[in-house]
Design a protein around this nucleic acid. Sequence first.
DNA 1: AAGTACGGTCAACGCCGTTGACTCAGCGCT
DNA 2: AGCGCTGAGTCAACGGCGTTGACCGTACTT
Lengths: 203, 203
Amino acid sequence: MPYGCRVTHPSPDPSRLRPAGLATRTAIEDAARTLFAERGFDGASVRGIAGEAGVDPALVIRHFGSKEALFLRTVDTSLGIGSVLDGPLEDVGRRLVAYFLDPARPVIRQRYVALAQAAHHDQVREEMNRHTAETYVAPLAPRLAGADAELRVALAVAQLAGLLDLLFLQRDPILTAADPAAVIATYGDAIQRLLTPPGPEDA
Amino acid sequence: MPYGCRVTHPSPDPSRLRPAGLATRTAIEDAARTLFAERGFDGASVRGIAGEAGVDPALVIRHFGSKEALFLRTVDTSLGIGSVLDGPLEDVGRRLVAYFLDPARPVIRQRYVALAQAAHHDQVREEMNRHTAETYVAPLAPRLAGADAELRVALAVAQLAGLLDLLFLQRDPILTAADPAAVIATYGDAIQRLLTPPGPEDA
DNA sequence: AAGTACGGTCAACGCCGTTGACTCAGCGCT
DNA sequence: AGCGCTGAGTCAACGGCGTTGACCGTACTT
C-alpha cells in the first residue's frame, strides 16, 4: 500500500479544519489576546495559548519567536488614549483619570495589568517607554507653557501610572472603595497642576 | 563494619560546617535577601537561593512553606520610610521623593523592584496594602486638615509609587536623565498639594 | 532501650519556554 | 516525470522552575 497513507488525515478538506499559514497565525494571535487579557503575561502560558488555538506549542514559538515577541505583537500597548489628549488642555488631567476609571472599559484594566506584569522583559519595557514618549510626551509637551515641559509630562504619566498601579495591581482597598468622582476630581486636578500650573496671578 | 559509616561525613565537627536548625534558617534567609535584591522575585530561584546557602532546595520549602512565604519573611516591605514621615508636615512631599531618589540608597530601589515583581502574588499584595495602611495612612491621615484625609494619603502613595514605577521598573529615559533636584521640587510639591492643599487665603 | 520528633537528603512530579529533528504538501525547475 | 526546495506542522526532548513525598540519621524523651 504505497499511497494509502492518505487515510491518516481524518479530514478530507484541508481548507476547512486546518487553516494554513496566515490563518493559523491569526488564530494564535486571537487566543493570545484573549488569554493575556484574562490571565496576564505570567498567567497565560504558551501551551495554553496553543491549546486554545488548536495548535502545537512549538508552532507558536516558530511563528513568533518567543512568548515576549508574541505578547508585543498581540497586546496593544497604547491603551487607546490618543483621543483623550486631543481635547482642551485645561482639564486633560481629569479626563485622563476618568478614562481609566470608567467601569465600561474593563479591557483597559486587563491590558494594563498584563503590560505591568510583562514589564520586566527588556523589549516590553522599551515598548512602554516608546509609547510614553510617542503617545504622551510628543503631543502634549509642545502645548505646555513654562519650563521643563517634557519632564512635567513624564511626571504626569508617572502620576497616572501610580494610580493604575494601586488600583489595578495592588488593589488598594481605600482607592478601590473610594468614590470615583472624588478620585477624578482630586487626582485629576493634581495631574493637571503638573501640566498647567496655575500662575500666581490666577484668580 | 556496622559503625564505620561515620566516614561519609567529611567534616568531623558538626557545629562548624553544618549549622544545625536555626543557623541554616538564617543562612537561607541571608541568601534569599541577597538574591531577591540582586535579581528580583522572578529572577531569584529557590534552587539558586538554596545553592547560595549550601542547602538542598527542598529544605527551603520545608522550612518556609513556599517561595512567596520566604519572600515575605525575608524582604522588608516597609522600605524604611517611617522616619521620613515624622518630620514637619509642610514639606513631607519633597522629603519622600528625596528619600527614594537618594543615590546613596540603592537597596531601596532593589527592594522596590523585587516587591513590584512579586505583587501579583496574593499574600504579597495584601502585605503591601497592609504596609500602605500602616506606614502611610495611619500616621499621616490624622494630621491632615480637610475632607477625605485617608483618600488623599492613599492618592499620595499612588503618586509616589508611580514615580518609582517609571524610574526603577520602566526606567523611563526622561525621568532617568532628569535633574533630581527638579524632580524633587516639582513632584514633591505635587504630592504635598494632595496632603496639604493651599487654601484660597494663602499668601 | 524503645519512641518519636525533626533536620536534612534524594528523586521525582508537573509545569514552563524553547529547540531540533522530522514529516509532508505544494511548487517551480529541467 | 522526477528533482530539490521551501515552509507549515508535529513530536519528543531539553533544562529550568516550584513543590512533594519517601526516606535517612540523629537527638531528645520516656
